[in-house]
Amino acid sequence: MPDSTDTDGLTVGQVSARLGVTVRALHHWDEIGLARPSLRTTAGYRLYTAGDLERLHRIVVYREIGLGLDRIQAVLDDSTADVPGALRAQRHQIAERIERLQRLSAGLDRMIDAHERGLLLTAEQQAAIFGPQWDPDGPAQARERYGDTTQWRQYAERSASRTAEEWQAVADEVADLDRALAKAMDAGVTPGSEEANHLVERHREVFASYFPLSRQMQVCLGRMYEADPGFAAHYDGIRPGLATWFRSIVDAAARAHGIDPDTATWQ
């Protein structure tokens, strides 16, 4: 390389600042022969000329659109390289990446809405799926009460990806379970029996549509179903005494697994 005075060209640091490229990257490109500075000072320091900067600008652009360094070198140095073809192929990859990012953005929007609203359904859809007695303000009230809990986050993640048809399937499973509970109580199924324990397990499985339910958490739910006026009205509206009977079979199943229902906590 020809010598130069200290005032000719730009130093590595100056080029780094001008192009927004790290000094380390410039040194690497120099080492692999992708972009070597054309000049040296009398003290041996490398300097970049205007031609070097032009090449570096092209490298930065090609790298920004996703070309690898080997491909960039071929585009710059191989006279037989199909530059338009390489750029078209890269444009196609970028278009696919944009489409993926747009899908990701839409998914994130749904996730945000689900965390804030709970159900991503209109009031009309909620009434059609959950029945005319359903309170469309219920999810907002639940968020206000439970929005800081792990279970609300789990519920929101499920809700974000669930369609109206899938919510209908969940509602149908819940209704089938309610009917099975009422039928079992009418038949005199006793707490702790095999049939009662099967219904308790089925309840945990169905409830997992909202969030995973441990046995201790299920005991707490059983208490709430009996004590909370809204839940008690729902179950006792199906069969008088159903809320208390359901709690009794949950407590019996918990005892069989070494859990004291009187001391069980939400965990």
Rank of each mutant, 00 (worst) to 15 (best):
D113E: 14
D113P: 04
D113S: 15
E116Q: 12
R117E: 11
R117A: 09
G118K: 07
L121G: 05
T122Y: 10
T122F: 08
T122N: 13
A123I: 03
Q125G: 04
Q125K: 06
A127G: 02
A127W: 00
A128G: 07
A128C: 07
I129P: 05
F130H: 08
G131T: 02
G131D: 09
P132T: 13
P132H: 06
Q133F: 04
D135F: 10
P136A: 02
D137S: 13
G138S: 14
A140V: 05
A140H: 11
A140C: 01
Q141L: 14
R143S: 02
R143V: 03
R143H: 07
R143I: 03
Y146C: 09
Y146Q: 08
Y146I: 03
G147M: 09
D148A: 14
T149D: 12
Q151D: 07
W152Q: 10
R153P: 01
Y155K: 04
E157C: 03
E157V: 03
R158C: 02
R158W: 05
A160K: 04
S161P: 00
R162Y: 01
R162P: 04
T163G: 01
A164Y: 03
A164R: 04
E165P: 01
W167H: 11
Q168D: 10
Q168A: 13
A169N: 03
A169G: 06
A171K: 09
V174T: 10
V174A: 12
A175T: 09
L177I: 00
L177W: 06
L177G: 00
D178W: 09
D178A: 15
D178T: 15
R179H: 12
A180G: 10
L181Q: 03
A182I: 08
K183A: 15
A184I: 08
M185I: 08
D186I: 07
V189M: 12
P191W: 00
P191F: 02
G192S: 11
S193Q: 03
E194F: 10
E195G: 07
A196V: 08
H198E: 14
V200S: 00
E201T: 09
R202H: 11
R202Q: 14
R204E: 00
R204S: 06
E205Q: 13
E205M: 06
F207A: 15
A208G: 12
A208N: 14
